[in-house]
């Protein structure tokens, strides 16, 4: 967790880097969870950090910069996904491409550990986010509900559904003997 003092002095580049480096990878992993492509996730991380740098004068105003940056990343990625889907022609095309690549991936995924990642890819966005933040980044429930602007009970409900979905699909695979 990262708290910033209310010191009003101007932030230097190295101070900013020191502030941001501890959670840069978390932003990247969250972006990759939503956008899938590594390249797009790097783009999103860069965009969010540059926006944050532009805001550095007001950065002291945020109690928890890390949570704020995670929320920015989530919003940025969801916007990207939305604008991708809004192109109709593209949607038809990418659906077609997706089906092919998922079939291809299914052949490639021999390892059941990798299979968990594939299962997560197909979860609803909210469940994906909650599972990422809790089981991979190990945030507290309060932090997650702040980042996602959800009630703590809603976070637990989504998390429970996500974990069960992963378990059920994993066990289904396991019983088919795909290892």
């Amino acid at each position: 967790m990262l708290y910033v003092t209310t010191d009003q002095k101007l932030m230097t580049q190295s101070e900013f880097v020191n502030l941001v480096m501890p959670f840069k990878d978390k932003l990247f992993r969250l972006a990759k969870r939503l956008l899938v492509s590594t390249e797009e996730a790097e783009d999103a991380t860069q965009e969010v950090l540059m926006k944050l740098w532009d805001k550095k004068k007001g950065i002291h105003g945020y109690r928890n910069v890390e949570a704020f940056a995670m929320t920015m990343t989530k919003n940025f990625c969801l916007d990207r996904l939305k604008s991708k889907q809004s192109g109709n022609l593209k949607l038809v095309h990418s659906n077609y491409a997706d089906e092919r690549s998922s079939l291809q991936k299914e052949v490639e995924v021999h390892d059941s550990v990798e299979w968990v990642g594939k299962i997560m890819e197909n979860l609803p966005e909210q469940q994906k986010l909650v599972l990422q933040l809790r089981d991979i980044e190990e945030y507290e429930y309060d932090e997650i509900s702040e980042m996602l602007d959800m009630k703590p009970t809603a976070v637990r409900v989504a998390l429970s559904r996500a974990r069960k979905a992963v378990r059920d699909q994993l066990i289904e695979k396991h019983s088919y003997g795909i290892q």
Binding site: Q13, F16, D25, L27, R29, G117
Partner: peptide, 13 residues
């Protein structure tokens, strides 16, 4: 395993 993944790109500031 997923927690080990790192961003490799330098952000120009």
């Amino acid at each position: 395993e997923a927690k080990q993944e790192r961003s490799v790109r330098q952000v120009p500031l």
